[in-house]
Design a protein around this nucleic acid. Structure first.
Length: 260
DNA sequence: TGGAATGTTCGGCT
DNA sequence: AAGCCGAACATTCC
């Protein structure tokens, strides 16, 4: 569910309703989502006012009048305003106006005090300069697919967008990064910016049940060229889209448009 | 029933 | 010593 475009969409729906609000009460009930002392976390959060909500990679960081709270949605996490609690509700923030719930069936999401993990990330894909991107790419001897997924290389790209970006750039996912010449590396940079920007415009991809903080799905899944399209015809050349495994992640590509 | 699913971390290895 | 790979985490859905 939540990669950079989805998290960006969540933050855009979250920020206007959360900034300036006071957290009257917080309750945490999962030892996975909130590892450590949950009562202590609730005490730290209680009574705080949210001053700013922003995205860093796939993290949602809430700056408070005292301290910071970071939320990672994992694979199936959702932040929802004024929703009915479910068996998968693991956190409740009661605000001075309404309530914000954190739901996560798989419990790969995390809610943590501070923004330590968000500070250890690579640059934002939409902020990094072409020069910086080319230099960093040339230093890596790993496969393009694995590199795009590496959050210390770039922050926010996940499995869907890695595949869509490599298709848009016409690059074979197993290509070794440092072996790309400048022209193709530049194509990768441009494809990355175009795919991510377009996906944000479409409010992200809803492939199973992703919704933003208002409960609305995205529409970029309708524009996926390779992800989830194994065996279907390539939108460019009609060849059957192939699915392989790289770094233990399903990887979709067109064997003709993305040659090794 | 086994396998895969939008993600991250950690141990082991080179 | 950096950096990669596979396993593990918990749950649902084919």
């Amino acid at each position: 569910m939540p990669e950079l475009p989805e998290v960006e969409t969540v933050v855009r729906t979250l920020a206007p309703r959360l900034e300036g609000r006071r957290i009257v009460e917080a309750r945490f009930s999962s030892r996975f989502v909130t590892p450590g002392n949950r009562a202590a976390l609730a005490r730290r959060v209680r009574g705080r006012t949210v001053t700013r909500v922003y995205r860093r990679g796939k993290f949602i960081v809430c700056t408070l009048d005292q301290g910071e709270l970071s939320v990672h949605l994992g694979m199936t996490g959702k932040l929802l305003f004024d929703a009915a609690p479910s068996p998968h509700t693991h956190a409740v923030f009661e605000l001075d106006t309404g309530a914000l719930l954190f739901d996560d069936p798989r419990q790969f999401g995390r809610i943590e005090w501070g923004a330590k993990r968000a500070s250890r990330l690579g640059p934002e894909p939409l902020d990094v300069t072409l020069d910086d991107f080319l230099h960093r790419l040339a230093l890596r001897k790993t496969r393009l697919k694995a590199l795009l997924l590496n959050q210390t290389f770039l922050a926010g790209i996940g499995n869907i967008y890695a595949d869509e970006i490599l298709f848009a750039a016409g690059l074979y996912p197993r290509t070794i990064a440092s072996r790309l010449r400048a022209a193709r590396a530049t194509r990768l940079y441009r494809a990355m910016r175009e795919v991510l920007s377009r996906a944000i415009e479409r409010r992200g991809s809803s492939i199973s049940d992703y919704v933003d903080a208002e409960g609305r799905p995205g529409a970029f899944q309708l524009e996926h060229c390779v992800y989830g399209r194994e065996g279907q015809p390539c939108v460019n050349c009609g060849s059957a889209i192939r699915k392989i495994t790289i770094s233990q992640r399903g990887t979709h590509y067109c064997p003709k448009c993305q040659r090794s």
